[in-house]
Amino acid sequence: MSAVEHSVPTPDVARRVFGDHVDRAEEFVDFLVNRGVVRGVIGPREIDRLWGRHVLNSAVLSERIPDAARVIDVGSGGGFPGIPLAIARPDVDVVLLEPMARRIDWLHEVVDRLELSNVTVVRGRAEEKAARKEVGTADVVTARAVAPLGKLARWCLPLVRRDGELLALKGESAGEEIERDAQQIRSAGGFDPVVVRCGEGALERPTTVVRIHKRVRVDQSQGQFRRKCP
């Protein structure tokens, strides 16, 4: 006999956030419930809060993603925020960058199971030259629970295209992190770090995000101004 498949109820807000793609989001949640715990992707205590704390929390980031953008999700882990974002926004090209082999296997299985043609999985670390060369750059780089903000800026901003931005999902201390790591952010080529909220009016607890723009310097050369990234 095959193991009994379990599921968790779909909250009404999921239909608002995912729209016509809610069935695919439900399939992802069911896969996490029935395979993610035994695979060590999520803890058993997370099952009852998968939708609110993980899936919807990630999906509402789509509010900040331009149309047809290219996104690199650094340290995807079990697929957050990259998988929910790719489900909610099939127009967006998402690269999942993850260093751990077992999580890479998981991500490949999820992408195949959900038939996410807009997702690419790459094994590597954002700070490694080989990984940077393989993934290239993107309009937006995302990260969730990866590292302190200063270190995250140093790793991620080289992957951000000119005039692009880093969107880092953070907790309630996001403002304190900005103040603490301001110098590191500037040194990494970032400017204007601000806290923004995603999912206001939809989620009971909106997602806290630190947005950092990629700095573009203006240099004078032979009497003409030119723009270049650091």
Rank of each mutant, 00 (worst) to 15 (best):
A3G: 14
V4G: 12
H6N: 14
S7F: 15
V8Y: 00
P9R: 08
T10Y: 05
T10P: 03
P11M: 01
V13L: 05
V13P: 03
R16Q: 12
D20F: 07
D20Q: 08
D23M: 09
R24G: 00
F28L: 02
N34I: 08
N34P: 01
R35W: 12
R35Y: 13
G36P: 00
G36I: 05
R39H: 11
I42P: 01
I47D: 05
G52N: 12
R53F: 05
H54F: 06
H54S: 00
L56K: 05
N57V: 02
R64Y: 13
I65N: 00
P66R: 03
P66Q: 01
D67R: 15
A68Q: 14
I72Q: 03
D73F: 13
G77I: 01
F80S: 09
P84E: 03
I87R: 02
I87M: 02
A88S: 12
A88I: 02
R89C: 02
R89V: 05
V92C: 04
D93H: 05
V94L: 02
V94D: 01
L96T: 03
L96Y: 07
L97K: 10
P99L: 11
M100Q: 13
R103S: 06
I104D: 04
L114V: 10
S117W: 11
N118T: 07
T120H: 10
T120G: 07
V122C: 01
V122H: 02
R123V: 04
G124Y: 03
E128W: 04
K129V: 09
A130G: 08
A130Q: 13
R132A: 00
E134S: 12
E134T: 14
V135C: 00
V135E: 00
G136E: 09
A138I: 07
V141R: 03
T142K: 13
A143S: 14
A143M: 10
A143I: 07
A143E: 11
A145F: 12
V146T: 11
V146S: 12
G150V: 00
W155C: 05
W155V: 01
C156D: 13
P158K: 04
L159G: 01
R161A: 14
R161D: 15
R162D: 13
D163Y: 13
E165M: 10
E165H: 11
L169T: 13
K170W: 01
E177D: 11
E177W: 11
E179V: 11
E179C: 09
Q184E: 13
G189I: 05
P193T: 08
V195S: 04
E200N: 09
G201C: 11
L203H: 01
E204F: 07
E204I: 11
R205C: 15
P206E: 07
P206N: 12
P206C: 11
T207R: 09
R211D: 04
V218R: 14
Q220R: 15
S221I: 14
Q222D: 15
R226W: 15
R227A: 15
